[in-house]
Each structure stands twice: as C-alpha cells, then as structure tokens.
Design a protein around this nucleic acid. Sequence first.
DNA 1: GTAAAATAACTGACCAGTCAGTCAGTAAAG
DNA 2: CTTTACTGACTGACTGGTCAGTTATTTTAC
Lengths: 227, 227
Amino acid sequence: MSSRRRQKAERPAQLLEAAFALFLERGFAATRIDDIAERAQVSKGTVYLYYPSKEALLTAAVEELLLPRLANLRQILEPTEQPAWPRLRQVFEAMWTLAVDPQGLAVAGLPKLMISECGNFPDLARRFVERWIAPMQDEVLLGLVQQGLASGEFQVDDPAYQVRVIVAGFVFQLVWRHSLAEFDGRGLDMRRYFNAWLAQTHAVLVGTALPADELAAEAMSLTGTQP
Amino acid sequence: MSSRRRQKAERPAQLLEAAFALFLERGFAATRIDDIAERAQVSKGTVYLYYPSKEALLTAAVEELLLPRLANLRQILEPTEQPAWPRLRQVFEAMWTLAVDPQGLAVAGLPKLMISECGNFPDLARRFVERWIAPMQDEVLLGLVQQGLASGEFQVDDPAYQVRVIVAGFVFQLVWRHSLAEFDGRGLDMRRYFNAWLAQTHAVLVGTALPADELAAEAMSLTGTQP
DNA sequence: GTAAAATAACTGACCAGTCAGTCAGTAAAG
DNA sequence: CTTTACTGACTGACTGGTCAGTTATTTTAC
C-alpha cells in the first residue's frame, strides 16, 4: 500500500489520539483545533477532512477509540465457575492491567475526562455511565460478590454499596493519576496502591486479612517532582 | 446601614459563589463573565470592580471562600487521647458532615473543580494538594492509624497506602456527586455509601466487621432522573 | 427642611484579540 | 493530466476586559 494511502488510513486514529490527550490535559474548551492539528502533525484544514467539528472529535474519541477497549475487559470477565474470591481477584488483575497498560492510557484517562466535561456534554456522560460504569458495577462485580455471598465465601452487609466503594477506590486512582498526582510531591507507587486496595476489598468481603502471598510484587512507581 | 452599602459588602461573596458554581458546572474556560454577572444579578462591569480578571475569580473562590471552611475541619481534629477507632470514627463523621452540609456545597465540590482545572492552573493545584490533601492524609488520618497500630488496636500492612485508599473512597463520592451522579439512573443514597465506606475502613484496620450499631441511621438520598 | 453638589456603585456599548470553521490553491501519486 | 490528500490564509462570531456615562445615596449650603 502506498505511503499516501497508509497515511490516510491512519489519520483518524492519530487525530483522535491527539484530541483525546489534549482534552484530557486542558479540557475541551481550552483546547484549540490548531493544537490538535499540530500534535497530530497536520494542518488545521486536515482535521476538518476527517471530523466535521470539534465536538465530533470528542464524541469519536470516546466512542470509537475507547469503548472498544473496555469491551475487551468485559469479555475477559465472562465465563467460568470458580470460588468467588479467585474469580474476583482475576477481574481486579484485568482492571489493573488495563489501568497501567501504556496503550491503555486513553482508557485510564477516560473517567477524568468524563468527570470534567459531563456538564457540557450530558448525552455523552449518560451513555458513559449507563453503558460502562453501571453495568461494570451491577452486572460484573456485584454479580460476583453475590455469588460469593450465596456460597458463604463472603459475608457483608449492603453488597451493592460495598461494590460502589470498591470501585471508587479503583477509579479514583485513575482520576488522580491523570490530574492532581503530578502536583503531589510524595509520588505514587501504583502497585502499592493496588495492593492496599486489594487488601481492603478482601478484608470487607471475606472478613480476614489478605494473605501476604496474594500481594503483587512488582513495584511500578510514579515519582512526583519535589517542590 | 443603607441598602447600597450592604450590597457592596455582600458583593464579593455573591460573585465568588456565582463564579464557583458555574466553574464547577461548566469548567473555567466554558464559563463567560456575563454568565457570572447574570447569576450574581449584576452587570458585567461590576464584576471587574471587585476582581481584576476571570482568573482572579477562580483563585479567590478557592482560596477565600473554601479554604477557611476546610480549616474548620482540621481544627475539629486537633486534641484528645482516646482509643484510635472512636477517634477515627469522629473524624469520619466530621468529614461526612462537611460533605453533606448544604453550606458546604462549595467544599464538597472543590475536588471536582481542582481535578478538572489543574492542568490549566498548576499553581493553584499544587497549593491545594500540598496544603490540604497531603496533610489531611499524612498528618491527620495516618497519624491516627499509626496511633492505633502502636496500641495494637489496628493491624494492617502499609498504613500509608491504606489511608490513601480510604481517602479515595471518600473523595470519589464527592467528585461523583458533582459530576456523573446526575446521569446515573440508579440514584445515590449518600448515607448508605458512607456506611459502606465506614465498614470497609473498619474491616481493613481492625480486621473484623463493623458492629451493626455503629452504622448511621438517617437516610440521605439523592435520586437520579430515570432515563 | 430642602435644594445643590459631591461621591459611590453600577451599567452596558464598545474594542481588541481569539478561535472554530471555510475554501481556493498546492503538490504528490498514479 | 487527473485525482487525492492536504494546506494555511481568511472570515465572522464570540468574549475578556475597558471606560464614559447613569443612577442612587450622602453631604453640604442655605
């Protein structure tokens, strides 16, 4: 395939990636089309050959670039019959992988973007919550927790809201990393955070401390600048 | 005092409240000075009699309107020698009160605002993290947890990061309520959330389930619109 | 007491800069 | 030579910030 054609085929993804990164960093209103063009190494006019408006870039970035990746995760979670905790543990690992995957930067940044922009793009926000957040909590995680309750493996009041708190601990780390983390001189060791989150989940569901051999070992550290 | 003078004395607070509410809802860049003026029931020119620029409104809203309220909380946390869990429990109640206080709407919205705008106002973000988030975690909560560890009341690995996860569960609820909650048809019962959060904290620190009589009773419900 | 003058608070038309979106033109590929 | 992909100067709507002018209140003069 000619280099001209290959470029054309890759343009939409390039543009969406540039747009997403800038929207995430500066917000939609504060991002100029010229900035997006520059980041994608094209001129402003080219942007409009592929997307009819600035808003279309945002919508497309969320719907086309990101949602398919999340669909991946959902698929991982589908099958099997096993004890609930190992199963849940496996779901957590998949979430974790998605969160730290360098390719998955976009997915990891999505909650921050939606939180920032939901006031100005309510339709997009609604789809995000209804199609991803709510099902992830209610169908996937709550489903597994209830399975564990039924088998007597877990013991907990108000599982629906426990799941919300658990998810909050995960999602907030994503949001933090894409917003205020860089201003925190203390740095952030993501693996330690993940282990702490896992320990809390285990403690509240199972009622005992997480066995030490279940802690993940590799350290993955982001160190902030010292003031 | 004449009505003219009284108005003048109240203007700054009116303007900051209007500005904060709109910045929170739409973001800084998408908020027009005219919108702020309209919300505060004055003309555009009047805004500039009190604050020299749009950015000054943001800075003032954060520093003058909000930080003093947070200072209150810190003060509550100061004294006494008691067992660690009741003490911690008391801190949690104070945080909760601040979060649901109708007067405290601004405080509760602050994390959402800072998360959204930190990319464009790094100095403000740094002050927010260094003066509020970090001390709240490291000095207040972590201090109490370590006190509990020393007395043998608590038992936990990596207390520094456990505290981070605990705080995440709290702060995320604030952020959620000021952003995506309205798009979640499932609604949000804040008291149930708070209780679940408390239960998780107790489970991970003490290693046993939270006694039922420690759950707070009053239901405080926010119901989202059904699609 | 009241009218005139002075002052304080506020207004909104205006200006200058910015940026989303357009389109006539360029150049490489075939 | 034609088509395809791209360019970047241009336009017009919008908005942050200004300031000459208006209105309400207070003070002064008598």
